[in-house]
Design a protein around this nucleic acid. Structure first.
Length: 482
RNA sequence: GGCGCAUUCGUCUAGGGGUUGAGGACACCUCCCUCUCAAGGAGGAGAUCACCGGUUCGAAUCCGGUAUGCGCUACCA
């Protein structure tokens, strides 16, 4: 390997297309990407599709789409392991030739029965190495019966394997606690262990940043590198992202697929910021960092060791911060598809752009996700409001008073020519004194008449945008309800 | 069962022998602003730093043990 290549940072994200990527997968991708960009290295994408049975149709496309959404651009790939089978087969053969691996003819039935028996006796379930020292004659006999062999690694029976993890320090395993794991399956496909180290070597990967769940397999990988006389990469095992039950994130934790967050109206920059802080920190106070700042400051040293429970409330808060920071025009651009998608079907499509432009600034500081926008802005668009008379009257107002208030308001507003927030305020505020009503009560009543809710954007601005016709119509409708 | 890793407010975390009677953020509570909501501002509550020993003048910080949690223990990744 050329010296220049050795010192350059080359990392990879190597998902298996067995499902949609969840937060944990994406966080691993993100840390690899940040590490590559920080060090001016390369970020490589590799699809580990070596399990035909568990392969999920369309998963690869979703993975790519998720990375694009988060703007985690890759420099090489995607490589597909299913298209690189000869590399693994050749390596397995070399291992057999050099007496580091052997063919195993044991049936999965026998293996299973053996494991069950071992478990029952409270023994560690391990392959019993029956085929490790087969003679040529015995092998021929088994092949004659039609047994399809797998290739197993000849794990050293004694000694220990030690490696230095960038995050966890020195870690040692006794070799006799490992068993002879499978390298090549009987269908000719490699297992993760083989494919992974062959590709990491061939692709000159300098650092392997992967989830903590791989820590226990690392001695196997080190042993493989040693057997092949290859230089292993630097390993760094990332703390995992946990579900609320503290268990490894999985399907049963609900909407964990990353594209679900896109659909729920989270911003990629908020996701990036939040995910990075799940396991990494800059200092004792910085919470908000842009993608550039993240790249600038990211380092392995500041990655924590403990698994992090995903805290949705904080994500919501952070997404709200990013939403509010958005340039108003950009906000509208982002929110419009959600309005088109989620506003009631009765609202005419396509939406009136200039009207949306007026409404959105009132919503921008109130939504934590873009998916909330249609809900919050709903009454600006729909024709019929739905609320009860009880709601209109509130706790302590009788029908008569309410009727009088609405009538007076209509009377005052009818002749008004200039219909903007300021004029409306200058008319309605004095009216509340005139009626001897607190602004809280008075505006509260009008708010429900105008918006159908108790919590909404400021009244006068809302009425201004709604326009005179619609506003008066709603006041009249309220009157009719009483 | 075996092996490995981890353990600081409910959650994410800072802090890596004395400046810490442990700092920040989310969530929560109170008050201010205010036509409601949101945003913003000011406060508050919340952690015997898992436990037990040891080293040290001094330990959240170093060492050992225990407990608990998690991960791995497949012809899955």
């Amino acid at each position: 390997m050329p010296a220049a290549l050795k010192t350059s940072v080359r990392v990879r994200f190597a998902p298996s297309p067995t499902g949609y990527p969840h937060l944990g997968n994406i966080r691993t991708a993100l840390f690899n990407w940040l590490f590559a960009r920080h060090n001016n290295g390369k970020f490589i994408l590799r699809i580990e599709d070596t399990d035909i049975a568990r392969k999920v149709e369309g998963a690869v496309e979703i993975i790519l789409q998720s990375l694009r959404w988060l703007r985690l651009d890759w420099d090489e790939g995607p490589y597909f392991q299913s298209q690189r089978l000869p590399f693994y087969r050749d390596t397995a053969n070399r291992l057999i030739e050099e007496d580091h691996a052997y063919l195993c003819y044991c049936s999965s039935e026998r293996l299973q029965a053996m494991r069950r028996e071992q478990m029952k006796r409270k023994q560690p379930p391990k392959y019993d190495r029956r085929c490790r020292n087969l003679t040529q004659q015995e092998r021929s006999k088994l092949e004659a019966i039609g047994s399809k062999p797998v290739v197993r690694f000849k794990t050293p029976l004694s000694g220990k394997t030690t490696f230095l993890d960038s995050i966890r320090g020195s870690i040692t395993f006794q070799n006799n606690t490992l068993d002879d794991f499978v390298l090549l399956k009987s269908d000719g496909y490699p297992t993760y262990h083989l494919a992974n180290i062959v590709d990491d070597h061939l692709m000159a990967i300098s650092h392997v940043l992967r989830a903590d769940e791989w820590l226990s397999s690392t001695p196997r990988h080190i042993l493989l590198y040693q057997a092949l006389n290859w230089q292993p990469p630097q390993f760094a095992h990332l703390p995992m992202i946990l579900g609320p039950d503290k268990a490894k994130l999985s399907k049963r934790h609900g909407a964990t697929s990353i594209n679900a967050y896109q659909e729920q109206g989270y911003l990629p920059q908020a996701m990036i910021n939040f995910l990075t802080l799940l396991g990494w920190s800059l200092d004792d106070r910085t919470e908000l960092l842009s993608q550039d700042e993240l790249i600038q400051h990211f380092s392995l040293e500041r990655i924590g060791k403990t698994g992090a429970i995903f805290n949705k409330e904080k994500l919501d808060w952070m997404n709200g911060v990013y939403l509010r920071k958005l340039d108003p025009q950009e906000y509208i651009r982002q929110a419009t598809p959600f309005l088109e998608r989620d506003l009631p079907p009765s609202v005419k499509r396509p939406l009136n752009a200039s009207y949306v432009n007026q409404v959105m600034p009132l919503i921008q500081e109130r939504a934590k996700t873009l998916a909330e926008v249609p809900q919050l802005a709903d009454f600006f668009f729909r024709d019929k409001l739905s609320y009860s008379t009880e709601m209109l009257l509130g706790k302590d107002m009788d029908t008569q008073t309410a009727t009088q208030i609405l009538q007076e308001t209509l009377q005052k507003l009818q002749p008004t020519e200039i219909w903007d927030a300021e004029s409306l305020e200058s008319i309605l505020r004095p009216l509340s004194t005139e009626l001897n009503l607190s602004t809280r009560k008075f505006f509260g009543l009008l708010r429900i008449a105008i918006t159908g809710r108790t919590a909404a954007p400021p009244l006068f601005q809302t009425m201004a945008i709604l326009g005179k016709g619609k506003s008066l119509k709603r006041l009249r409708e309220a009157l009719q309800r009483l």
